[in-house]
Design a protein around this nucleic acid. Sequence first.
DNA 1: CGACAACTTGACGGGCGTCAACCGGAGTGG
DNA 2: CCACTCCGGTTGACGCCCGTCAAGTTGTCG
Lengths: 252, 252
Amino acid sequence: MLRSVRALEPLIGKLGRLARLDEADKAALLDLPFLVEPVRAHYHLVREGDRATHCCLLLDGYAHRHKIGPSGSRQIVSFHFTGDVLDIQHLLLPIADHDVQTFTPATVAWIPISALRAVTLARPAVGEALWRDSLVDASIFREWVLNVGQRDAKARVAHLLCEFAVRREAADLGSPTAFELPMSQDVIGDATGLSGAHVNRTLRALREAGVIDHRNRALAIADWRALCRVADFRPNYLHLYENTPSAELAYG
Amino acid sequence: MLRSVRALEPLIGKLGRLARLDEADKAALLDLPFLVEPVRAHYHLVREGDRATHCCLLLDGYAHRHKIGPSGSRQIVSFHFTGDVLDIQHLLLPIADHDVQTFTPATVAWIPISALRAVTLARPAVGEALWRDSLVDASIFREWVLNVGQRDAKARVAHLLCEFAVRREAADLGSPTAFELPMSQDVIGDATGLSGAHVNRTLRALREAGVIDHRNRALAIADWRALCRVADFRPNYLHLYENTPSAELAYG
DNA sequence: CGACAACTTGACGGGCGTCAACCGGAGTGG
DNA sequence: CCACTCCGGTTGACGCCCGTCAAGTTGTCG
């Protein structure tokens, strides 16, 4: 475990996009106690049933949240990037109802829940940003219910890629149209309610349609509009509003 | 539109289960401005794209939230009962990302968002209760992603019935094991990602297995344990903890 | 260069969608 | 009191999307 100065910068970046934070708000965030921990891929950060004492901020790498279904099957319910708070619900719901797991090597910061709650009370703008973040999370879950409930395999996978691209762009994590897809096809399957084999077939179909270019784990979106059309993708559920900077991902 | 005294009692009941409210908190809630409106079944309370000015509290009747998918299909993402705030996310996310619609005749109270936000700032316990409510909502969405993503038809429908029963019990809305199922089979299909025809087949299978008794729209749960087993139902995602009073729905 | 995980592809089968027909109850109008 | 309408429930026939399984290939890391 390490303790480094200003490691919480990514949190300020994220929350600053969700609410207007003044200098005192930012100072209070930077003043939070925390412990930095590098972890390997496939490391369980939270397990269902845990009584949480700390919230987990993802400083680097990728993670997902998932639930275990009948006969051990796994449903991934969200993906997370640098700057995301992985379990903000533990501020108010003490017992975890799902697992959180890295799927690449990652670095996380553990923040005591008591300290985070104190900040939300002392600095209402911070509380507002965190609450809004959890509401956007909920909106993404709703969209995923729609995704696995109504769309066919091609649309499901395409939708996932669209969301990945737009969220990367919004979080300023590099090119939105060419990036590494850091997860295995089984993981994509667990997120879309498909088998790994069918994810493979589906990615091939998207490639052969000229919509994406996908080799190994390198993804390039060849035709953004076409991908959105296949995916039935409308980004409103991400609630980015004017914070979507991208000309590259122009929509409509 | 009507204005009646203490119409907001159901809100106090609900929030009182989510956080410890003192007399001043309750007084602040009862002091909220509101307008009561009776509405017919299938009335749209909120439409995707609306800029919300009021939050909608369900005083009586049933409602659901849904999103429109490819080629006009509909995915219901949650059901709501008396006492539920139907669109708490509009406190912080101004533009609706989904529709809210009654499916029985209902009575709602419209509360101005500005007034509700003022109360959350002045009375932190109220803010905490509302935030927690929105986090439980999010947890339910996650469970629904699992439901439509991983479970087969019988488990999906059974899970919906289990959730209905436990939430009725928790909200003190009458018998948890015998009640009216107020929605059509198409509606159940839209909530579970199944066709209405297959919901019918599935309900028949559950009836023939002796798990439920279901005639017209009257539902009786004949074997609660068996229903839970079929449904892969574990109520932890509802975050009721010690607030689950039921001996009738004992689990484990 | 060997081991192992992930990817790839094909064959086969089943769960559930689609469609169509029929039924049954509630409301409506004569 | 009955005919008509309409919505929802019920059931069967048929087919497709996608799961499962198995075999082979590729990529990567020690």
